[in-house]
Design a binder for these strands. Structure first.
Lengths: 113, 113
DNA sequence: ACAAGATACCTTGTATTGCAAGGTATCTTT
DNA sequence: AAAGATACCTTGCAATACAAGGTATCTTGT
């Protein structure tokens, strides 16, 4: 999967997953990896960003199958941001599809050759 | 419009516009600017890339309203690449929408708290 | 008891790309 | 001659995804 396409969408995807249930970074990677590639090197800095923006809060939970997990929980702020991101995403997709359809109002000037 | 979302899509958008008619960088900016922001600082390096990949060829045309224009024309190679990009784009959008819908097959493990 | 493997956390450095800011030259209009 | 539009271009910066590497914990096999 093309790396560049993901830019800007992974935040939204992570927030969307967290909107369903709290989760931790390692699990988020495996969840998202089912459909799109995402690696640990991506998720940890990303989660830090989400936390800095106050879109998620964290709590530690001991696991019976390994080291403690740092769970992330969507904040009210994060929920609002997710909705905002959704809107922007839909508008963006609509515009790209428009261009792909031959959309950007072909100027009235014929091309040579 | 969010900068990051555009990454990876602008190449495709430019190729799609060129699939309709040859054009030059300055005009491409004004065409695409109708729906999505794109600036000259973006387009020139981008066109260079497309040319290096042999997806477009160029020819100069004198203008009666300013300096000569460097027209870009989609190559056969570029046309194939455009189709490939379209497919990847559609798959990508489908997967993101899937995640947004709550898609990534919720693992059978309940989150605490 | 020890090694191996899975789970879970993290950082560093690199590549790509979009963009603001700045620069040059041409042509038309005033 | 000056101003503005057209058209080309480069440099340096910011954001983000990721490979590669590192640490620690817990379970399982031998």
């Amino acid at each position: 999967m093309k790396t560049q396409l993901k830019k800007g969408t992974l935040d939204m995807c992570v927030l969307a997953v967290l909107a369903q249930a709290d989760s931790y970074a390692y699990e988020l990677v495996s969840k998202l990896s089912q459909g799109m590639d995402i690696s640990e090197g991506t998720i940890y800095p990303l989660m830090r960003r989400l936390q800095n923006e106050l879109w998620v809060s964290t709590y530690l939970v001991e696991s019976s199958s390994g080291p403690s997990r740092k769970y992330y929980k969507l904040t009210d702020n994060g929920r609002r941001e997710l909705e905002s991101m959704r809107r922007e995403w839909q508008e963006f997709v609509a515009e790209v599809e428009n261009v792909l359809r031959g959309g950007p109002a072909a100027m009235t000037e014929e091309a040579p050759q």
